[in-house]
């Protein structure tokens, strides 16, 4: 008991220190997240055009949003991207993680896998933009030398979004694989040994042991990469700028276009608030549905 009260007083005296250490984080949070968020919310009730003082216009922006067909289109295009991106990326990453876990201990290979993720998004997008160019690009040279027809990739309404999804899968799969790999390392090896003794094959072990025990990490990866892919923007700025036509006009590009091309900052903020509400709903559903706070290892 004496030690306990001692600890408590020590905790009290450490309290000030704790705050001091947390302070930089809190300042960062306030300056870069809290204040802009609140300002963004306030902005959504104005008609601010960047150059003249903002005027309060109540819920007019929200009323406009409800009837905005292009916003719905932007949501659809974004959802299309997410559907193209997330399942494939997660499956590829899971495959790579399992291979890493079962067959190699090489940190070199892990390093190479994560390399695309270390490149800035802008560089990745530029790199692929050049490689996929319809006239000069390396990829089309290869396709033609194999006797096939040249492909427009980013220049075609049908191919643009799958191409962007592929670029981002290339960039993120390695990183996701490393996260999943870390999760795999957490699964006790004796479970596999026991299964092997009972005569389970690789497939049965994967379905019966790896997947269930990996669930918390898998959910973490799914939630974060889902939100990340909703925020697809930089690749689009570099490669298609929302085009051709409006095939890649995702929500973030739509927000950018309203804010900095059409000078309607107020409406852009309104779309952002709507996007925030959508994302938070998706996240809550995901967390509930997958029971992310429990593990089958318990």
């Amino acid at each position: 008991m004496t030690t306990r009260t001692g600890l408590r007083s020590a905790q009290r005296s450490d309290f000030a220190w704790a705050w001091l250490f947390i302070l930089p984080s809190i300042i960062g949070f306030l300056v870069f997240f809290a204040v802009p968020s609140v300002r963004g919310l306030l902005m959504s009730f104005t008609n601010w055009d960047l150059l003249r003082p903002a005027k309060f216009i109540g819920l007019a922006n929200y009323a406009k949003l409800l009837g905005d067909k292009e916003f719905l289109h932007a949501l659809r295009v974004t959802a299309y991207y997410v559907v193209l991106n997330i399942p494939l990326q997660t499956v590829i990453a899971l495959g790579m993680a399992v291979l890493l876990d079962r067959f190699t201990k090489s940190t070199m290979i892990r390093g190479i896998l994560i390399l695309p993720w270390l490149l800035p998004n802008i560089i990745v997008a530029l790199l692929w933009l050049w490689m996929l160019d319809p006239t000069l690009g390396f990829i089309n040279q290869v396709i033609m030398s194999l006797g096939f027809e040249r492909q427009p990739f980013l220049g075609s309404v049908d191919q643009a979004m799958p191409t962007i999804a592929a670029i981002n899968i290339w960039r993120h799969a390695g990183y996701t694989a490393i996260l999943l790999f870390a999760g795999l390392q957490n699964i006790p090896k004796d479970v596999y040994e026991a299964a092997a003794i009972d005569g389970a094959d690789e497939r049965q072990m994967f379905m019966g042991i790896t997947l269930p025990l990996l669930r918390p990490v898998l959910i973490f990866v799914l939630v974060t990469s889902l939100i990340g892919s909703f925020q697809i923007f930089d690749t689009i700025v570099i490669t298609t700028k929302g085009g051709p036509v409006d095939a890649t006009r995702v929500v973030y590009w739509y927000i950018y276009e309203y804010a900095f091309v059409r000078f309607k900052m107020g409406y852009a903020a309104t779309i952002s608030v709507a996007l925030f509400l959508i994302l938070i709903t998706i996240t809550v559903i995901q967390m509930r549905y997958f029971n992310a706070d429990t593990s089958d290892l318990d």
Binding site: F32, F33, P36, G40, G183, I227, F230, Y252, I255, D293
Partner: peptide
């Protein structure tokens, strides 16, 4: 592990959501 992962997940999710909210400012 579970608590660690959850803590990281929550921190990252909340910061990403806030980034989403500041969407107009981010670009």
């Amino acid at each position: 592990f579970r608590f660690n992962a959850l803590a990281i997940a929550l921190v990252m999710v909340s910061s990403m959501l806030l980034a989403a909210c500041g969407g107009a400012a981010a670009p």
